[in-house]
């Protein structure tokens, strides 16, 4: 997800579209990315965090969370 201090014009455009659809009460929309990785048992959490921090996310502008399903 873009960090809170990063302006997200795409999210703002979605928020504007919701108003035009007649949906009330949505104060803010932020747009991010979601990746699903199929991994072997040998891939530990540390590796997943490294993947997220080195490639999937840009730590300069994005925060991320890693969850296992």
């Amino acid at each position: 997800m873009p960090k809170p201090e990063i302006l997200d014009p795409q999210g703002q455009a979605v928020a504007g579209a919701l108003v035009r659809l007649g949906v009330d009460g949505v104060a803010d929309v932020r747009q991010g990315k979601h990746f699903e990785l199929e991994v072997d048992d040998s891939v530990d959490d540390e590796t997943l965090h490294r993947i997220a921090g080195q490639l999937l996310a840009n730590p300069v502008i994005e925060d991320w969370v890693v969850t296992r399903a």
């Binding site: 990063i6 302006l7 014009p9 795409q10 300069v60 502008i61």
Partner: peptide
């Protein structure tokens, strides 16, 4: 160059889209 870490910061979607 920013993504490679040679320069600081990042370039993101234009304000106004």
């Amino acid at each position: 160059l920013c993504e490679a870490g040679l320069l600081p910061g990042a370039l993101v979607r234009n304000a106004g889209l």
